[in-house]
Design a protein around this nucleic acid. Structure first.
Lengths: 121, 121
DNA sequence: GCCGGTACTTGACAATGCAAGGTACACGGC
DNA sequence: GCCGTGTACCTTGCATTGTCAAGTACCGGC
């Protein structure tokens, strides 16, 4: 089925900023487009109400900068791009993510013993 | 540098329950030991103050069951094991985790463009 | 008896995603 | 001229969950 099923709110925590930083490293972009880009990545349950505050935080922390650009198809877009500090933050977060994946990988990749026999000492 | 540096609090959210469920699927265990098992996995910054509440939640939600076992090296241990529902929850969470990793992987695995040339349209 | 290691518990705190709603611009149909 | 739809952004209230810090208590050896 097409349903992703990965709507485990908590798993997304912290990953969102990483994804946003990485997408912005790729190219300058704005909130609305980033939401669709995330959806295209398979993160279909990410809401715009999560993205805009996240972008605000990243800007507040100096990781990204914004500029307004008028659009002919709607209201002005707020384009974001990485600041130098943003690249550092991205590198740091990406490394933390990789560490975490590597740490979890060995246990989740092993097959799950479904219903072990009673083996009490 | 021995420092892991991966203490991105937010990234751990939700992953902890997954790790605990998986470790308990492996074999029955108790909080204190689970903390050391997590540390051995490379999750050195996980605090016992995070693990015990997490175990409490898993028990509250019926995913694991507990039994007290006296110890000769200290106070009684609370051994946890997966309930049938716990195996289902583990399968579900593991799948959500894999989805997330697969979704993020394509962007984080690509090399990060460090300081792109000015390429404004 | 007291101390260090074992083992579990708890409370104040902060960060973050979600749900739901609101504001506002551009354009086409009527 | 008005309205609906798509674009685009913002905000508030809420629940969840990890961190930090401190506390309780059991055990064996000195």
């Amino acid at each position: 089925m097409a349903e992703n099923g990965a709507h485990d709110s908590q798993l997304l925590k912290g990953v969102l900023s990483l994804a946003l930083l990485r997408l912005l490293a790729e190219r300058e972009s704005y909130g609305y487009e980033l939401v669709t880009r995330l959806h295209d990545l398979g993160l279909a349950d990410v809401q715009d109400g999560s993205v805009y505050p996240a972008l605000g935080r990243l800007e507040r922390d100096g990781h990204i900068t914004a500029r307004l650009v008028a659009s002919s198809t709607g209201p002005a877009r707020k384009y974001y791009r990485l600041s130098p500090g943003g690249y550092a933050e991205l590198a740091r977060t990406a490394q933390a993510w990789n560490s975490l994946v590597r740490a979890i990988e060995p246990i989740v990749s092993k097959p799950i013993p479904t219903r072990p026999e009673e083996a009490v000492p």
